[in-house]
Design a protein around this nucleic acid. Structure first.
Length: 124
DNA sequence: ATTCTGACA
DNA sequence: TGTCAGTA
């Protein structure tokens, strides 16, 4: 199928589909015309990609992890142990980011409270 | 009618 | 990511 049909079957814009290809997530064949030729299995592949993206993984990691993901139609499950480790590391990075945000959030809150009650405004 | 690449009032 | 352009 061409990109238009894959787009309809997945709900992903053709722009997004081309972007996935650039990121190495999809590797369609090319017709002599230059048109991208996708496999029927790509419909499901796109679905998996979206799940992984929604889980916060960047395209680099998805590219590595995608090949060994079992898909029972409902959820994705890691196949190899190495990948499982990659996912755990990613989740740890995520946790660190959350902590950093919490810290920044607390500081901003302190700054906001330090300004209360708002009374005589000098310059601003 | 469709897709392709490159680019951005 | 959308979208417009100029093609094939």
């Amino acid at each position: 199928m061409f990109i238009g049909e894959l787009s309809r079957q997945t709900g992903m814009s053709t722009r997004g589909l081309r972007y996935y290809e650039q990121q190495g997530l999809l590797q369609p064949r090319r017709r002599p015309s230059g048109y991208r030729e996708f496999e029927d299995s790509d419909v499901d592949r796109v679905r998996r990609i979206r799940v992984l993206l929604a889980a916060g993984l960047n395209t680099d990691l998805i590219r590595e992890v995608l090949p060994c993901m079992a898909d029972d139609g409902a959820i994705l499950a890691p196949t190899c142990e190495e990948m499982a480790q990659d996912l755990v590391r990613e989740r740890e990075r995520m946790s660190r980011s959350i902590e950093e945000l919490k810290s920044a959030h607390a500081m901003l809150e302190a700054i906001i409270h330090a300004g209360e009650p708002l009374t005589a405004q000098t310059d601003c």
